[in-house]
């Protein structure tokens, strides 16, 4: 297949997919004769192309794959469509989610201790319902073998992260104030 044709096919595959598509899925469709580096190269080309101000959406690398998303500057218009339920987060939900993102797998008791003893069961339930977190097992050495929580692929998708290592190291958020002010 010509490279141009390959590009069209890859573009089409990503367009029809509901979830981020990774290079391997594309290779499965195209066949083993097309190597991953060619696919990767084409994906980068497409990313560059859609980043042009002429397009309303762009190709974003997220949750281990590639996905077309509308550009941020279009948000105000798209929200007017009313068919999208806007994503909202409370402060407590964001606190708990942040702790889970960095400390996973983590138990409810550990989360609550880090928040100064605030009961977090309601927030955990909301986050579970939104599928941003999941129970990921049990802590065997703790009394009562409590459940542990981890973030999900949907968490990466919602916050536009490639994977968990895409999160900045926690130390970056721990700098003394004097240092950050300089």
């Amino acid at each position: 297949m010509e490279r141009e044709e390959l590009r069209k096919v890859i573009e089409g595959i990503i367009f029809v997919s509901d979830e981020p598509v990774d290079e391997k899925t594309i290779q499965k469709v195209l066949g083993d004769s097309i190597d991953l580096s060619t696919i990767k190269g084409i994906l980068q080309e497409l990313q560059l192309e859609y980043s042009s101000p002429l397009h309303g959406f762009e190709l974003v690398e997220v949750a281990g794959g590639y996905q077309f998303r509308t550009k941020k500057e279009l948000g105000a218009w798209i929200r007017k469509l009313e068919k999208f339920q806007p994503q909202r987060f409370s402060r407590s939900a964001m606190e708990v989610l942040s702790i889970i993102a960095y400390k996973q797998p983590v138990t409810r008791a550990e989360i609550e201790a880090m928040r100064g003893g605030i009961d977090s069961s309601g927030v955990l339930k909301t986050l579970l319902m939104k599928k941003l977190i999941k129970t990921s097992g049990r802590k065997r050495d703790a009394p009562g073998r409590p459940f542990t929580y981890s973030t999900t692929k949907k968490f990466l998708e919602v916050f536009g992260l490639k994977d968990l290592s895409d999160l900045p190291p926690i130390e970056e958020f721990m700098k003394r104030e004097e240092e950050t002010e300089i």
């Binding site: 806007p86 880090m114 919602v158």
Partner: peptide
């Protein structure tokens, strides 16, 4: 405890500043 709590509050701000699906960007 205070320092780690403050860090997580900043993580929360960081996450909220991302291009959030169905808030800023759409599929």
């Amino acid at each position: 405890t205070l320092i780690s709590y403050q860090a997580f509050k900043e993580v929360a701000d960081f996450l909220l500043s991302r291009e959030i699906l169905n808030r800023d960007v759409f599929l």
